[in-house]
Design a protein around this nucleic acid. Sequence first.
DNA 1: TTTTGAGTTGTTCGA
DNA 2: GTCGAACAACTCAAA
Length: 480
Amino acid sequence: MTAPSLLWFRQDLRLADNPALMAAAAGPLLPVFVLDDQAAGGWAPGGAARWWLHHSLAALGAALAARGAPLFLLRGRAEILIPGLAQAIGAKEVFASRLYEPWARERDRRIAEALAADGRQLRLATSAVLMEPARFAAGSGKPYAVYTPFARALAATGDPPSPLPTPTVLAGLPQPPDGLALATLDLLPRRDWAAGFAAHWQPGEAGAAARLTGFLAGPIAAYGAARNTPGVAGTSGLSPHLHWGEMSPRSLWHAVRAALPQPGVLGPQSRAWPFLSELLWREFSYHLLWHHPSLPDAPLRPRFAEFPWAPKPALLRAWQRGRTGLPIVDAGLRELWQTGWMHNRVRMIAASLLVKHLLQPWQDGAAWFWDTLVDADLAANSASWQWVAGCGSDAAPYFRIFNPVLQGEKFDPAGDYVRRYVPELARLPAKWLHRPWEAPAAVLDAAGLRLGLDYPRPIVDLAEGRARALAAFATLGTPA
DNA sequence: TTTTGAGTTGTTCGA
DNA sequence: GTCGAACAACTCAAA
């Protein structure tokens, strides 16, 4: 009989297209998940992500149990528990999907060493990305620093390999050890602020598949334009499923290619490109995080170390609570609080206000998103906040500052989105919805709105805030 | 090595 | 109301 192996689930909570699972399933296996908050330091999953993780583990556990290999749950330091468990069951190999977070890379390195010292092996599979960042570089051999050449070069390598099948039967250990009950991982919030999440999300592989089916049946056709309209369901909503690995990026890639068939055509001219390029932005974020492990903490452009941020807790708090007095920003932050997710267009507008008009450090915004997003992903969150702040990886002109009124009027013209999440403004006519402080008194009266009481006046004068941001950027001067 | 073309997502002003 | 230009120079990637 072959030696059993250990299958360590981390952020690949699926059975479909899971190379680590397929490798482990060649013989008897013990699937294990370890909740290891200590190793992650400040980047342990945030509150919303823990809610998701709880439900995703429940789904994965059920799927594994149905196939004969129940999921073994542990809590504690993986670098002790995993080698110990491998030894206890006599596993020669530990299979897992590769992680890209700096803390996780460091931990995997130590675990691989500990296992090797004992004659065992940690085998990591490519599973969370289309292309290993370590094996993809520009012509110069250096990592890419600009999205467009990165995306073009990646597309030029062709479609990724086809997804692997889902195993129907697994050989569990004859006498699997008793793990923790899911509830004892304590992932759900004490005070049930996440009660509303369940109306929006179905964590787990089946939920991911259902979301994909719905997306391909409708929104994909108009994705290029509709993805920017937060009032309609024009996006895929797959981000949390991708983050937790409930669907692999290459499965998604192939599903979208099959839904918009154009044999032989791949690249900016293909119909699938508007969506695929979003998937490639995710990929680019992983590329950046891999090559710049300080991405979550420090500006990629070193000169930004001198940027005159002006931290002010009251401003940050008003932004977090959706009380800035700028309707589309407040709608976004309230959507985030209620659903654990925020529309991508609104993320940019809200983030821009925080770092530019309000001059709050991007790290503060990133930390809030980390705690409140069900799709919080260290690569995407860090890269995106740096991009908005202007210290990230692109040559965006510094004067590109979003005006939340114009953005609201452009992308939420009828005000459907603002009305949904800022009900106190719901009765305002569209003409004034994105600028209530300019509405005539009679209009406010008719809408039953008392500015400053029912809804705040703007926390910042937009023209002044813009000028302040430009002045702050000007202090950086030109690099040597 | 040097050169060249190009770069996610915008706003404001004035004709 | 609509349109084009200005905003200012930097950095990257590839030829």
